[in-house]
Design a protein around this nucleic acid. Structure first.
Lengths: 136, 136
DNA sequence: CTTTCTACCTATTGACAAAGTAGGTAAATG
DNA sequence: CATTTACCTACTTTGTCAATAGGTAGAAAG
């Protein structure tokens, strides 16, 4: 599984917020609309908020909303934020966790190409694209 | 992580066996060459053997070898066998585990396209391709 | 026919992360 | 001040991956 529920929920929430345009939507409402546990969703919204992907306002009439146009959010940026990484295998990671055989491994170049392909895929889609897709 | 060590080890073993051509290579030798635990590798070789991907011969002079030309093995076929599935997300699975929102989910079409892209990628590469890649 | 080499089989363990839960604190509004 | 909301820290549960342990059975050589 390359993308866990965390990233998938985040995407659905972002598309949902895009549909609501400039309104502030409380967490409770998002959770119910998407069928996600409120408590679990909290941890996801915190990440989105801290990274500046959404505005958050306390108190009555508050909640979350996007702070840019849906076309300004790539799917890749949202997934990298919530998942940490989109690597299909651990082989391609750098630093201390790097594979000791990476210099001679005959499969490594393939993993690099796969990573590149997946990254291009997600960076080439925006929240706006998903919005439109649903309306067809 | 879309591909675990099981699948990655299996690929490396298949490429390794391809290099040895028609010789029977004992598990112990493969494990040492690839730096994989013998016992763990056993479970992988059993899968490859039962699926008819390799020939296995007992006793002295025995071991494992490929039973087709390296060009006859797609990477996709090996990974699907050892990993069970190459799905990037659980959303795209059919049957009882299917997502209840799949019919209305605005992200689902994207996951379907991703799965297709990944499948095409792996089905378009063979063990022979990886062999050549290492020699460049 | 016995020893050695090899594959094959079943079960168990440890580590880790994902997914979800619980209970409280702080800010904004009316 | 009361209500609504976001924010924070910690915990539990679950499941899978990765690896380990200890055997059985087949094939070949001496």
């Amino acid at each position: 599984m390359i993308v866990s529920t965390k990233g998938r929920y985040a995407l659905r929430v972002m598309v949902g917020l895009a549909q609501r345009e400039d309104a502030y939507v409380p967490l409770k409402e998002i959770a119910e609309a998407e069928g996600i546990s409120q408590k679990y969703l909290e941890s996801i919204m915190t990440v989105l908020s801290k990274a500046g992907f959404v505005d958050a306002v306390h108190g009555k009439g508050g909640g979350y909303r996007l702070n840019r146009s849906p076309s300004q959010y790539t799917i890749g940026s949202i997934l990298k934020l919530t998942e940490g990484s989109l690597a299909a295998v651990s082989c391609t990671s750098q630093g201390p966790a790097a594979c000791s055989r990476s210099t001679c491994c005959q499969t490594k170049p393939m993993w690099d190409r796969l990573d590149k392909m997946i990254d291009d895929f997600f960076e080439g889609i925006t929240v706006e694209d998903l919005l439109k897709e649903g309306k067809q």
